[in-house]
Amino acid sequence: MRRFWFGLTSSAAVGHQVSGCTLGSGLYDTVLAKFTGSVAAPLLASALASLTPLADGLTRYVLHDLLGLPASVAGSAAGSVAGTPSSTATQFSQCRQHFPAGTPPVVPGAADLRELCYSGFAVLHSGSHKAPVFVAERLNRSSVVQAKGLQRTDRFFADARLPRAERAELADYQGSGYSRGHMAPAGNMASAEAMAQSFSLANMVPQNQTHNAGPWSQIEQDTRSYAQRAQGDVYVFTGPVYSGPTRTIGPGKVQVPSHLFKLVYDASTGKSWAHWQANAASTRMSAPISYEELVRRSGIRFLPG
């Protein structure tokens, strides 16, 4: 297996999948304000029942993980919401709209790979790297126009759907010298909910700040400009690559990628190209590489057929 995948299969983690729906970080504040301190189980059940089914999966993890509630209390209370499935399993089948022809890439199996669905993107997350393997988005003229009117929230949060042992925390980035680099950019988000969700650390990698604000930002802007001109949907895959000596940040040892890639695929024309950039301050804009070259370097065949 290529070096790109070696780290992904190097550690085993908790084997269950987690919920496919997430919320804006404002829910964290609401829940904490209501339930800090000692609370009774009936009060929790009543509060959870008032939340929408969309919130259910993440609410259980927020209450259990952040407030230290017994799993039986959080689980039974959340299960009382009418019409809410009891399973917390997440699959890309719940958000196929983010993938060309509704078909996610086939990747090598590993115990700590988890599929996460969000409103505006999907993440295949690696628990060993505590970062995405890739993030998938669908852009078009309408979504780009809608995104232009939204204000950044800049409220980063650790995604409580991921087990603590597999996720990055805010403390990992503090004082690290690296920025929290969006893989699905906040500037692509076409709704307030999607904007809030884009600040999940599951959508981040440790990125050199100069690179993030310079050539990488230009690539993101150019991709939006192309999607606004395109006749139909444009699919984008973004992710990190790890090669050379292992570098980590924070007490959680979040791995720092050596390179980043962004694949752009125009479903109307079949045209595709990929950007491949070193995660370094010295990186400059460079010519795109072909899709087949990206497949060779990454070991992932992103597009169906």
Rank of each mutant, 00 (worst) to 15 (best):
156 F>V: 00
174 Q>W: 05
285 M>Q: 11
22 T>W: 01
111 A>M: 07
71 A>Q: 08
183 M>R: 02
8 L>I: 04
139 L>F: 10
255 Q>L: 08
305 G>R: 10
142 S>H: 09
90 T>S: 14
43 L>A: 15
83 G>L: 04
164 R>N: 11
27 L>D: 14
8 L>C: 04
167 R>Y: 03
114 R>V: 05
282 S>Y: 08
60 R>D: 08
256 V>G: 00
207 Q>S: 10
112 D>Y: 06
175 G>Y: 09
13 A>T: 13
240 P>F: 06
276 W>T: 09
236 V>T: 12
152 R>K: 11
56 D>M: 06
301 R>L: 09
43 L>W: 08
69 L>F: 15
57 G>F: 10
74 A>E: 07
213 A>M: 11
57 G>M: 04
105 P>N: 12
271 K>G: 02
42 P>N: 13
212 N>Y: 09
179 S>Y: 01
199 F>V: 02
244 G>M: 07
159 D>K: 11
177 G>W: 02
21 C>V: 06
152 R>L: 09
12 A>S: 12
139 L>G: 06
11 S>R: 14
206 P>V: 11
55 A>P: 02
95 C>L: 10
63 L>H: 01
26 G>A: 15
56 D>R: 12
41 A>G: 09
264 V>R: 01
301 R>W: 04
226 Y>V: 14
5 W>V: 04
6 F>M: 02
218 Q>C: 12
268 S>L: 03
2 R>Q: 12
128 S>R: 07
275 H>E: 09
188 N>T: 10
172 D>F: 04
111 A>K: 04
181 G>T: 01
258 S>F: 05
39 V>P: 00
238 T>A: 13
197 Q>L: 08
239 G>Q: 03
88 T>C: 13
100 P>I: 08
242 Y>T: 00
22 T>L: 07
99 F>E: 00
285 M>H: 09
147 A>L: 07
88 T>L: 15
262 K>L: 06
38 S>H: 13
50 S>I: 01
91 Q>L: 12
9 T>Y: 04
209 Q>N: 08
282 S>Q: 11
203 N>K: 03
123 V>E: 01
243 S>I: 03
83 G>E: 09
151 Q>D: 11
181 G>W: 00
4 F>C: 06
185 P>R: 05
295 V>I: 01
245 P>T: 15
174 Q>R: 15
235 Y>H: 10
55 A>S: 12
30 T>N: 14
7 G>D: 13
26 G>K: 11
148 K>H: 13
298 S>Q: 02
123 V>Q: 02
24 G>I: 03
150 L>T: 12
129 H>S: 05
18 V>H: 10
76 S>A: 15
116 L>G: 00
42 P>Q: 12
88 T>Y: 15
190 A>Y: 05
242 Y>P: 00
183 M>L: 12
263 L>K: 09
48 L>A: 15
249 I>S: 09
91 Q>R: 15
190 A>L: 02
180 R>C: 07
160 A>K: 06
268 S>T: 05
214 G>L: 05
48 L>S: 11
238 T>F: 02
156 F>A: 01
